[in-house]
Amino acid sequence: MPSSRDFTLRRSNRRNQIKEYVIQAVLIACSFVAIFTTIGIVASLAFEAFNFFKKIPLTEFLFGLEWSPQTALRSDQVGASGKFGVLPLLSGTLLISFIAMCVATPLGILSAVYLAEFAKPKTRNLIKPMLELLAGIPTVVYGFFAALVVAPIIRGMGSGAGFQISSESALAAGLVMGIMLVPFISSLSDDVINAVPQALRDASYGMGATETETITKVVLPAATPGIIGSLLLAISRAIGETMIVVMAAGLAANLTANPFEAVTTMTVQIVTLLTGDQEFDSAKTLAAFAIALFLLVLTLGLNIIALRIVDKYKQKYA
């Protein structure tokens, strides 16, 4: 009887083992796709941007005050190609993002506070998905609405008040983008506010503070780092947003801080430069990659800082 049973603990089946190794190798290969994507993005942007900087000096790109790529006649005429100063695009991007954040910050934080602290569970379960719906609407829809409805209203109000507002004003694009950003701020801020320990609220209530005092003087200060993180993520979104500005903001590269004027953004210029007929080696097309690289550095930088802040915050109350 004992002889018929095998009590050996040696690895018996070589084929099974090979199978395990193969599967593991496939899994590792899959998870490398994400890395290759990043490498691909950085490499392709950097490569084309490098070609661009061979034609246009980096300093001119970074510090040039004028943007008019359309004057490029032939790609081999270096001096005769257009003006490639990114600053007007950056200022336009920042102006629209600023307007958007002016709308989204108060709306987002106040909504989050209301949902986290005041709303009954029933209300919360109804309102929260509705706010998140805002994040699920394709941006092309926002862009259409901004161009078709919001911009004319703003222009009408302007002429009613007696001053000229461009039909592609930064204001229209910024306002609509602001609404789009509300759920990004509110849902992350909501999490952050909920993570503030109940003990702190109890301490404040226990001393006779009203709910509002508890929120503004205890909860929000404690949640500030996390809320700042959510704001930075929203800014990063605003800077990278494309369709709303393509449809509602203009093409004119104005270096202005006036929200009633038309401005253009980095993403708008990328789209403009790369749609339609293109010769791949012209400074015009390559410029799009240089802008995109700039955009990537900007958004990733904001994102990394934001995630750091949020992580630190989470550790604090973990």
């Binding site: 994400a34 392709s44 990278g240």
Partner: peptide, 21 residues
């Protein structure tokens, strides 16, 4: 880290990746 950051890359940049690569 890479995956978390990829989630925040503006979508238009993915388009440029497609174009170039």
């Amino acid at each position: 880290v890479n995956i978390n950051n990829l989630a925040a890359v503006p979508s238009i940049v993915f388009g440029l990746l497609g174009l170039a690569v």
